[in-house]
Simulated scan of single mutants.
Amino acid sequence: MNEHLAPVTYLRDARRAGTSTEGDVRRDGLREHPSARRTSSPPVEQAVGATARGDDGDDARSDERTGKRASNVSMHQLARRGMSRWELEQVLAKREIDPAIAEAELDRLESVGLLDDAALAVTLVYTQHTRKGLGRTAIAQELKRRHIDPDIIEDALAEIADDDELERATELAVKRIGQMSSYDDDTVKRRLNGFLARKGYSSGVVRQAMDAAFASRGKRGVRFQ
């Protein structure tokens, strides 16, 4: 009795026909399940990702260049003369340095002691008083012009003792009165008073300095009320 056998479908035939029931047939004759196939990112997504990474890198390099420029500008300015934080901030703003980067550079300079409003104030008090002969009022105005904190100004001005201020004012008055020997006393008084007042001395210091100046000229007994 003849047995009827089911028709055989060879693997290569199934591969050609695309009729695999469990998945594709690999070259070695084994079937591969569809879930095992690897997928790649769509070209558009790859392009977007690459662009985003490139933008971040460009931004980082740009910030680094700006930071170096801010540092170079700052060091150049501080090498020329002492500056307050506000003054240097204005310079960086004029150079169109990004405010956030400028702020970071100012903080860095303060942290290493290259930018110090308190030290600058003391230096200015000394130079303005000793070399230029300015009184407390004029010095305070100069420090305010440079936007130094009022508390710092007050502490710096305390470096000038009352006796030192009177002594400096008297030196200026004596020198000045020696240049006005041809004028009468009233004219000398008016001009000397205006000169010392412009130097920033208080009215009390001005009166004492003028008394000493007239005394040095042989006009003892003359006092100004």
Rank of each mutant, 00 (worst) to 15 (best):
S111H: 14
D13P: 00
A79Y: 06
E32T: 04
R80M: 06
V91C: 02
D59T: 09
K144T: 15
L134D: 01
D55Y: 15
A118S: 12
D98C: 06
A14E: 11
G23A: 08
T137G: 07
A17R: 15
M83S: 03
E110K: 14
L106Q: 08
R38T: 03
A17W: 12
E87S: 08
R145S: 13
A118W: 00
S74V: 05
H33N: 11
E103N: 08
A70R: 01
G18A: 06
G54H: 11
I153Q: 08
A118Q: 08
H76C: 06
K132P: 01
T39K: 07
R53D: 11
L78S: 03
Q46S: 12
A17G: 07
R15C: 01
I152G: 00
A79H: 11
E105I: 03
T19M: 06
I148D: 00
H147V: 06
T21C: 09
G113K: 13
R146Q: 08
D151N: 14
R131L: 14
G135T: 10
H147R: 13
A93R: 13
A138T: 10
L115C: 07
L88V: 09
D149E: 15
G82F: 00
R31S: 05
D28Q: 01
H147P: 00
L106E: 02
D98F: 01
R38A: 05
R27L: 08
K132F: 13
P43D: 10
L92K: 05
A52I: 09
R12L: 03
A138K: 13
K132I: 07
Q141G: 13
Q141C: 05
A100N: 11
E96Y: 07
D59Q: 13
S40H: 01
S62Q: 14
G133S: 09
Q141H: 09
S111N: 13
P43C: 05
G23V: 03
G57Y: 11
A79N: 12
R81V: 04
L106P: 04
I97W: 00
R131D: 15
A140N: 12
D13R: 08
A102H: 04
P150W: 09
V122L: 08
R85E: 13
A47W: 03
K94P: 00
W86G: 06
A102R: 02
D107W: 08
S74L: 05
P99R: 04
V25D: 01
E96A: 10
W86D: 15
G135A: 13
R12M: 03
M83Y: 03
L134V: 04
E64M: 14
L124W: 02
I101V: 14
A140C: 12
G57S: 13
A140Y: 01
R15Y: 00
D24F: 07
P42A: 12
G82N: 05
S35H: 10
L106Y: 05
A79F: 09
L115A: 04
T123W: 09
A14F: 00
R65L: 13
L114S: 14
S74Y: 03
D117T: 02
S74A: 15
Q46L: 09
L120A: 04
R80S: 09
T21Q: 12
R38L: 11
G113I: 10
M83H: 04
